[in-house]
Design a protein around this nucleic acid. Structure first.
Lengths: 147, 147
DNA sequence: ATACATGCAAAACATTTGCATAAGA
DNA sequence: TCTTATGCAAATGTTTTGCATGTAT
């Protein structure tokens, strides 16, 4: 896996190619995604970036998220009821395991998605663009706690 | 797979056990879910039920959806940006293949999810409650059309 | 008779959009 | 300089909630 410095450089290059401007806010938002292993929500990134840019607006974060999704540099982990989360470290489809109590997200060590995707593509005639595989459950730590 | 009449009976029994009332609106909503193979949205069910109950409100449909989810009699197919869809025919986790152009949902013939779930449960120590496996792509029919 | 469900309107929520101002190229 | 980005506020779209009224049991 690429380190976050070279990831950042790649993203900045893509932005330049698109005639997008390299602003300090954008860099801060991108870094927040690249440096977090918490699979942050937009709100979490907003709070993180706000430590440096107190006046930044949520709208700016949303616009950058939408840009990074287009560039395929972050992966959206879709939740049915809002509260989407994002993976900036591995921006390609892979499974997630989400604790229904504490909402922690981890990555189970299973590597079948590519094969399954290829098989479905062949069987169905669909041209598959992306996929989502999410497991919801109770993590060991939350299982110990009553309630 | 159970036919929709016995599914309906089962659901009505569950409702009685919960001291929920059997209203004609509820029956109509449940039947709309059980009889559709289109993986309908709340809006679609609302429009369907409105053919019979012109005054029904969206709120009633939402409340019934929430009830049916609790009873595990419909499966929510989560979309990241609202527009959730529901499967009332097979209300247990199974893969879906969604056309990104026409939004048609079909069910690929792949039966690995249970095994993968069991394996992840064992490896992670999580107690897995549910899962979602969704593939997004372009269906053969939409591939033929330009744009 | 007495819960519980319905329908309406308002609220809540995440997300998007429009626009004047600020700032990168 | 000229175009794109920012921040604010308002708008959007979906889902939820509160409450008076209606209805199943």
């Amino acid at each position: 896996m690429k380190d976050s410095q070279s990831r950042l450089d790649d993203i900045l290059t893509k932005l330049r190619e698109r005639n997008c401007r390299i602003t300090s806010q954008r860099i801060a938002i991108i870094e927040a995604f690249l440096n977090s292993d918490k699979h942050p929500s937009v709100e979490m990134v907003y709070e993180e970036v706000r430590k440096t840019f107190r006046a930044i607006s949520l709208a700016t974060v949303y616009k950058t998220v939408s840009l990074l999704k287009e560039l395929e540099e972050i992966l959206e982990i879709g939740f049915s009821s809002g509260h989407n989360r994002y993976d900036g470290k591995k921006p390609y489809p892979h499974p997630h395991l989400i604790c229904s109590k504490c909402n922690t997200i981890i990555e189970p060590d299973i590597d079948l998605l590519d094969q399954i995707t290829a098989e479905i593509e062949k069987l169905s005639g669909y041209q598959i663009l992306s996929s989502q595989l999410e497991f919801f459950g109770v993590c060991p730590s939350c299982q110990k706690q009553r309630k």
